[in-house]
Simulated scan of single mutants.
Amino acid sequence: MNVALWIAGGLLAAVALTGGISKTLIPKAKLSAQHGGEWTAAASVGFVKSLGILELLAAVGLLLPAVLDIAPFMVPVTAACWIALMVGAMITHGRIGQFRLVLLNTVYLALAVFIAWGRFGPWSFGG
């Protein structure tokens, strides 16, 4: 199970890194023209960039604390924060009818729930 949790953490970190880089570095006008980025048209540049930074921090927080054994409790805390982020993403995509993206966000949410459950519980790094 520990290996499955590491794999889930790695997959979710890759998703967070990809989303964070795109929201932080790609101009909002270009993001809003891409499939899945339409929601950015109604959001401020600062909000989009802030989400991107949060996603970059999540990518780091899902793996690095455990790898370096510095505050490994941050891994499940980061996963719990990702759950909140995915609920927001699901609501946002649902409002504009992007139900395929809602389903994709549900998969990301499930991975985060799995990581939070495992790392807060039976496979925590403290035990």
Rank of each mutant, 00 (worst) to 15 (best):
A58G: 10
L31E: 04
K49V: 14
L64W: 14
V48Q: 01
A41D: 12
V75A: 09
V75E: 03
S50T: 15
I70N: 08
V60P: 03
A66N: 12
L63E: 04
L68K: 06
W39F: 15
V67G: 02
G52V: 03
V77S: 03
W39C: 00
A33W: 04
A80N: 07
L56H: 05
I26F: 00
I26Y: 02
A58W: 00
H35N: 03
S50I: 05
H35Y: 11
T78N: 05
S32N: 09
V48L: 04
P27T: 01
L68V: 15
V75I: 14
I70R: 10
F47T: 14
I53S: 10
K49H: 07
T78D: 04
F73W: 15
V45Q: 13
L31Q: 08
G36A: 12
E55G: 02
F73E: 13
W39N: 07
S44R: 03
A71C: 07
P72V: 14
L31C: 05
V45E: 15
G36H: 06
V45S: 11
T40W: 02
F47V: 08
F73P: 06
L56Y: 08
F73K: 04
G46T: 12
L31H: 02
L51W: 03
A80V: 15
V60Q: 01
L51I: 11
V45D: 15
A80P: 09
G37I: 09
Q34C: 05
E38T: 12
L64Y: 14
